[in-house]
């Protein structure tokens, strides 16, 4: 197996004053090119920290992240992030938000006209070209997240990082966006690492599901292959035995073996 993205023995400890908390312990994961991998776990298990480490926004305490056998330890457009709360800059229009990244990444490789066309191409991919001159405050939550995805895609990342991208959306919008992301993955063949806490979402979208144990010192508890053929159809999967079995496995992991004990 050719490792495209490799998380190599990652530990993460936060220190505040005298108190140290070990958040992640010995995380090892290899992801192939074009693979869609989800990380699922209860809240507080450090999955967002893990994504931030891959994005380079947080340093590791031990271990390293290798992308195409090169260590990466600072943020960059090759690992574009779709943030949970969209994080569009409210003073820029939809077009300008996407253009900001495009202008930086393709400053020397594309002409102005090409960059403009590239921005529009990516807005078209997420069906947001019609709103290009609107500001984030003027579009709905689902639309904002579409623009967030377009912004990340437009940087042509080697790995696309999704940080609970649909967490803040209502169920219908979420389903719609999941289908969009699935179609984009099918079409563009991106390598995607997604954080989620939604079992159905993980099974529907992923090739593999990484299940994290509860923190502190969260580890990778189990990795589940999802052997479902693509393209996947939401409605057909609802009764598919393979789908149900995967779903069952994840649920068992989360609710029986690693039940979330709330700190009371």
């Amino acid at each position: 197996m050719q490792a495209y993205l490799k998380l190599d023995h990652i530990d993460k400890t936060f220190t505040r004053g005298n108190a140290t908390t070990e958040v992640l312990k010995d995380i090892n994961l290899t992801i192939e090119k074009g693979e869609y991998v989800s990380i699922i776990g209860h809240s507080g298990c450090g999955k967002s920290t893990l994504l931030n480490i891959v994005a380079g926004l947080t340093d590791t305490t031990q271990g390293c992240v290798l992308l195409e056998n090169r260590e990466v330890n600072s943020p960059g457009p090759d690992r574009a992030v779709v943030f949970q709360n969209h994080s569009l800059l409210p003073w820029l229009t939809v077009y300008e938000n996407v253009r900001l990244g495009v202008d930086k990444v393709f400053a020397s490789t594309k002409t102005r006209a090409e960059r403009d066309a590239w921005v529009m191409h990516n807005l078209n991919l997420v069906q947001m070209a019609h709103a290009k001159d609107k500001r984030p405050s003027e579009i709905s939550g689902g639309m904002k997240q579409r623009v967030g995805i377009a912004r990340a895609l437009a940087m042509e990342p080697k790995v696309l990082l999704l940080d609970e991208p649909f967490g803040a959306l209502d169920a219908l919008t979420r389903a719609h966006l999941q289908d969009s992301v699935m179609a984009l993955h099918q079409k563009l063949g991106n390598t995607i690492l997604m954080i989620t806490h939604d079992v159905d979402e993980a099974v529907l979208l992923s090739d593999r599901i990484v299940m994290m144990t509860n923190g502190p010192s969260a580890r990778i508890g189990e990795v589940l292959e999802v052997p479902l053929a693509r393209p996947r159809k939401r409605l057909e999967l609802a009764t598919n035995p393979g789908y149900l079995k995967c779903r069952q496995r994840v649920l068992e992991f989360l609710y029986e073996r690693h039940r979330f004990v709330e700190a009371a």
Binding site: A55, G56, L57, S74, P75, G76, P77, R79, A80, V81, F83, S87, L89, L100, G101, K104, V105, M155
Partner: peptide, 8 residues
């Protein structure tokens, strides 16, 4: 974070 990812 956005600025860091875009590398402004």
């Amino acid at each position: 974070n956005v600025a860091a990812v875009v590398q402004l």
